[in-house]
Design a protein around this nucleic acid. Structure first.
Lengths: 192, 192
DNA sequence: ATACGATACGGAGGCATCCTCCGTTTTGCA
DNA sequence: TGCAAAACGGAGGATGCCTCCGTATCGTAT
């Protein structure tokens, strides 16, 4: 984990690390915040001691799972880069919503992780921010999206929306269209 | 709690019930999900046994606090009824955001409560929905808000936005203006 | 091939926290 | 005032996170 630079990590250690993340994703998805550490260890065919050496606190395990998930979202930003600017933005956001849907079960867990170690939130937010940033910027420079919003704000809108509990994928897709309408260049409208 | 109809509830019981909710709000606000049951009981000058008779599970206590909070939001809908339709909508939403800001510390707690007993989420959602519903409907009937969104959807957008962790009150107020732009009647725009 | 130091494993228990149980106290009515 | 029903209190059970340290495994240098 923090050893990446100091020493190559032994073969069995690397294997167990991987197994643990996989098992954790499964159990967290199945049982949400009810997921127990011993259960995850057992699923990975590993003792709890091993689990805790790799991931000293529960949060660290959640973090590891989440970090991998974030990779997927970041990759998506590249995949849409051959669409037209506005279409790419729409596609990325739709993908994000679809993706978020599949993560609903451990949102509570993640929420707590963010609360306890803000660094994780900040770090992931930056990575996702960079991804959406490139997509958004392209749309803005093409003049098809309003310029007075930044990627952080956009993510807060969309991310927040997805956080909401009892919403189906279809509902979220639909809500996204409202956000998108607000994202179009606005000609001299004011609300406050 | 569930005795409301069957019997008038003894004087000391009623007093302790009230004390517990007050203490719980304080401790939950101060320590978030770190808040312990014994601590709350002590703050209320009551034994843990008493606490658990009134609120069998931790969630029930969180629920009681939340339920009172929801009352405030619902009341706000009446208070804005003498403003112009669009202004009333803006004022209510701004009030909601301001209010949500003050609840940030126990969002995790609430999140878990919602996860474990969906009834709470549904019930509160309905009450808040009714409140925002009247404000939104007025704006829609006056032709100043688009008609193809309902109160549930609006709350998911705004509520979700407020859930997001690291956002200041000012940031949320600003984000609200983007939502509001998306809420205005849209003349034949499409995104999908 | 082997020996040996370093690295990693495993699971019994420590500790904190949620919750239960039941003997004692308080309330309110006759 | 007496008494039954209701409520109180806190010791202790259950559960789940995490630590500790003796044992097993790995990888390198001879």
């Amino acid at each position: 984990m923090t050893e990446t630079a100091s020493r190559p990590l032994r073969a069995d250690a690397r294997r167990n690390h991987e197994r643990l993340v996989t098992a954790a994703r499964e159990v967290l998805t199945e049982r949400g915040s009810e997921a127990g550490m011993e259960e995850i260890a057992k699923r990975a065919d590993v003792g709890v001691g091993t689990l805790y050496r790799h991931f000293p606190r529960r949060i660290d395990l959640v973090e590891a799972v989440y970090r991998e998930d974030v990779d997927g979202i970041v990759a998506l930003a590249e995949e849409v880069s051959d669409l037209a600017p506005w279409d790419a933005l729409v596609a990325w956001l739709q993908g994000f919503v679809r993706y978020a849907e599949s993560k609903r079960t451990f949102l509570t867990e993640l929420h707590e992780a963010f609360e306890k170690c803000p660094d994780l939130a900040v770090n992931s937010r930056e990575r996702i921010g960079a991804a959406v940033g490139s997509v958004l910027r392209r749309a803005q420079e093409a003049g098809v999206a309003r310029r007075d919003i930044d990627h952080g704000e956009l993510m807060q809108l969309v991310g927040g929306m997805c956080m909401a509990r009892n919403a189906s994928l279809e509902q979220n897709q639909r809500l996204l269209t409202f956000l998108l309408d607000g994202l179009r260049p606005q000609q001299g409208r004011k609300n406050a």
